[in-house]
Simulated scan of single mutants.
Amino acid sequence: MNRTASGGGIVRNRKNAGFTLIELMIVVGVVAILASLAYASYAQQIVKSRRATATACLMGQVQYMERYYTSRFTYIGATVPSSGCVTELNDFYTFGSTITASVYTLTATPRGAQAAGDGRCMTLSITDKGIKGRSGPATDVLDCW
């Protein structure tokens, strides 16, 4: 539809039909950046959650070892139970123990996705004296425990 403007020129009315391709590409790019940031944060929280579960499993094993020692006055013969949380974390941690008559060390070593996703806190350990340890570049043991 053509109209004549007061200046004598022709003005065309144009209806906006929607977004241009450039506008759409910008929106898709922004959404992709936000999604990648959200996924990275989510993956980090999953690693922390599994680590917290592994430390809880180790503490449960410590309680078992102390009950065993209380009734027998030795750690020899104690078999660390592979309870539900240990089997639940089977794909992410390998649990181990070193046991003598008067001392023990329990460990949880990350594997698979857990080892790849967390370079700060690798192998977690606890001794019969309650000394908590970790391998990896974390600055403090409490960062991992």
Rank of each mutant, 00 (worst) to 15 (best):
residue 127 T to C: 05
residue 115 A to M: 12
residue 92 F to P: 00
residue 135 S to Q: 07
residue 92 F to W: 11
residue 71 S to P: 00
residue 125 S to V: 07
residue 21 L to M: 12
residue 144 C to D: 05
residue 22 I to L: 14
residue 119 G to M: 08
residue 9 G to P: 08
residue 16 N to D: 11
residue 21 L to S: 08
residue 136 G to Q: 03
residue 139 T to Q: 11
residue 57 C to S: 14
residue 7 G to F: 09
residue 66 E to F: 00
residue 107 T to W: 05
residue 86 V to S: 08
residue 115 A to G: 08
residue 38 A to W: 06
residue 65 M to Q: 03
residue 27 V to Y: 10
residue 142 L to W: 07
residue 73 F to S: 15
residue 45 Q to H: 14
residue 141 V to D: 03
residue 87 T to G: 05
residue 99 I to Y: 01
residue 64 Y to M: 02
residue 55 T to E: 07
residue 113 A to Y: 05
residue 68 Y to D: 04
residue 133 G to N: 00
residue 83 S to G: 13
residue 130 G to I: 01
residue 60 G to H: 01
residue 17 A to Y: 07
residue 74 T to S: 14
residue 129 K to W: 07
residue 129 K to I: 10
residue 16 N to L: 15
residue 8 G to N: 10
residue 137 P to G: 01
residue 14 R to C: 09
residue 50 R to K: 13
residue 56 A to F: 09
residue 114 Q to G: 04
residue 82 S to I: 06
residue 69 Y to R: 11
residue 10 I to L: 15
residue 27 V to L: 11
residue 75 Y to D: 04
residue 136 G to V: 10
residue 122 M to V: 12
residue 33 I to V: 15
residue 50 R to A: 06
residue 97 S to G: 02
residue 95 F to T: 02
residue 101 A to I: 06
residue 95 F to P: 00
residue 122 M to W: 05
residue 26 I to C: 06
residue 65 M to Y: 00
residue 136 G to M: 09
residue 59 M to T: 13
residue 14 R to F: 14
residue 132 K to D: 02
residue 108 A to S: 05
residue 30 V to S: 08
residue 101 A to H: 05
residue 79 T to K: 07
residue 21 L to P: 01
residue 7 G to H: 12
residue 51 R to M: 05
residue 7 G to Y: 10
residue 20 T to D: 06
residue 120 R to V: 07
residue 121 C to R: 01
residue 130 G to L: 03
residue 12 R to H: 14
residue 65 M to L: 12
residue 64 Y to I: 00
residue 52 A to R: 10
residue 8 G to P: 07
residue 55 T to Y: 11
residue 78 A to M: 08
residue 91 D to R: 12
residue 124 L to P: 00
residue 14 R to P: 04
residue 144 C to H: 02
residue 133 G to W: 00
residue 57 C to I: 10
residue 10 I to P: 03
residue 33 I to Q: 09
residue 45 Q to E: 14
residue 140 D to K: 13
residue 41 S to N: 15
residue 107 T to E: 04
residue 41 S to L: 13
residue 105 T to R: 09
